[in-house]
């Protein structure tokens, strides 16, 4: 027993550096920003404690509520589209087609590019005199030409499409990995029983993809609720606040407008929002995974 305790102390010492980093760079900032959310603070002078006033102001501020609505809509659209298309791509690239290795690489490339690069790329393409409108003109679809980032709905959808385009490869790779663990024999057995390709997919393959579905849904839901880079780089929240997300508003208020206290309160609201959505989602998906096995 003594020896055991001794060993435990010995090994736990090795955890100290990690613990130190964790506390300094994660725990402390999180706790301090929860404190700052209760203060009136411009980020420079001494914070003044004001209780829950920042939260009251947040929920009375129509722009903040709009940002929450936008964020939820981003999360929903991006999660659904990215997973449906990602799964479709994975299934297609799991088949025995000749260029599948090259194609997998092509679809995965945007994931490893920096958001900055991707956003500037799309900014150029979406410009009224950019390549997307030029191509539409070339194929005589002039009627479809748009001021992509100048119209509220189009700007919002452009950001959704760009995000999906960027991260679809990520979902695809996770589904692909899962697909390769599914034994051929199961599908063959189903085929012998007379199931066609669609039936085989929905009755055999899809239930067995439960683990990857769980992780993909969670990752894309949480990730898209924190959406910031494309908005910051492409629309600055505009036109007329149409594309503002909670993180973008947090940044604008906290850093640009010198309301660090309000910004901290916004981050707490976002944290609770993510928690409120991801926990039930996780619970549901876990249960579903159990049932599938």
């Amino acid at each position: 027993m003594r020896n055991y305790v001794h060993k435990l102390t010995y090994f736990s010492v090795f955890l100290l550096p990690a613990l130190f980093i964790y506390i300094t760079f994660l725990l402390y900032p999180i706790l301090s920003s929860s404190y700052y959310s209760l203060t009136e603070w411009n980020g420079i002078t001494k914070p003044v404690f004001i209780g829950l006033d920042n939260f009251v102001a947040f929920f009375n501020d129509s722009a903040s509520l709009k940002a929450i609505k936008n964020t939820l809509l981003y999360a929903f659209l991006i999660t659904v589209i990215q997973n449906v298309l990602g799964l479709l791509l994975a299934v297609l690239l799991d088949m025995n087609i000749r260029s599948r290795k090259v194609l997998r690489m092509i679809f995965f490339t945007p994931v490893i590019l920096s958001s900055l690069v991707v956003s500037y790329l799309w900014l150029r393409m979406l410009d009224p005199s950019g390549v997307i409108n030029a191509v539409l003109e070339l194929v005589h679809l002039d009627g479809l030409k748009q001021v992509w980032l100048g119209d509220a709905k189009m700007a919002f959808m452009s950001i959704v499409v760009m995000s999906v385009w960027q991260f679809i490869g990520y979902s695809m790779v996770i589904y692909l990995a899962n697909l390769q663990t599914i034994p051929e024999s199961l599908k063959e057995a189903a085929a012998i029983d007379g199931a066609n390709a669609v039936q085989r997919f929905f009755n055999v393959t899809f239930p067995l993809l439960a683990p990857s579905l769980t992780i993909n849904l969670l990752l894309s839901a949480i990730g898209s609720m924190k959406i910031f880079d494309p908005i910051f780089l492409m629309t600055k929240g505009g036109p007329f606040y149409a594309t503002e997300s909670v993180t973008f508003r947090l940044f604008e208020q906290g850093f640009r407008s010198n309301k660090a206290g309000f910004g901290s309160a916004t981050s707490i609201v976002l944290f609770l929002l993510i928690l409120l959505i991801s926990l039930p989602l996780l619970a549901y998906l876990r249960r579903r995974e159990m049932n599938a096995q």
């Binding site: 100290l16 300094t24 402390y28 999180i30 301090s32 700052y36 940044f251 906290g254 981050s267």
Partner: peptide, 24 residues
């Protein structure tokens, strides 16, 4: 010794005072 090496690399003794997690 490990810790002191770490803090020497970090160099930001007041890092913890940075405004919020989002400043990372």
């Amino acid at each position: 010794i490990c810790l002191s090496v770490l803090s020497a690399c970090g160099g930001n003794k007041n890092e913890a005072e940075s405004p919020s997690a989002s400043a990372s």
